[in-house]
Write a protein that binds this DNA or RNA. Structure first.
Length: 110
DNA sequence: GAAATGACAGAGT
DNA sequence: GACTCTGCCATTT
């Protein structure tokens, strides 16, 4: 099994973790926003890489979703249940991106 | 040091 | 409105 997990050995990784931690309860954010908070608005991919590693256990990574309002490709089914995504009713499973807009962390100040 | 991988984003068709 | 392709970045091997 080859599972290259990233570790928080860099400041950037730490920054991403801090950004996720900044997410208020009942709200979700996108990789792009996290990347931007980390200082690299184009590093959404890198953000996903860091999460994959799980360098910060306990961190609400499940609150971070794709900009499209979808979950991305991590296949978090049980996770969503535990996630506070029900802030607006339900983000995934039925209505999706629309409600997502309601719980989206208003951090994107483009 | 270089190549491969990956939980995305945005623009174009 | 939906699908496809490319670009950007960081980490790991």
């Amino acid at each position: 099994m080859k599972r290259p997990r990233a570790s928080a050995s860099s400041a950037f990784t730490r920054r991403v973790i801090a950004a996720v931690r900044r997410i208020p309860p009942g709200r979700v954010t996108t990789y792009g926003d996290i990347a931007r908070l980390a200082g690299k608005p184009r590093a959404a991919r890198a953000v996903g890489n860091i999460m994959r590693g799980g360098g910060a256990p306990g961190l609400p990574y499940h609150r971070v979703i794709a900009a499209a309002g979808r979950l991305g490709g991590y296949g978090g089914n049980e996770m969503l249940r535990a996630a506070p995504l029900r802030a607006g009713g339900r983000v995934v499973g039925g209505g999706g991106a629309r409600q997502f807009s309601a719980v989206r962390w208003p951090s994107r100040t483009r």
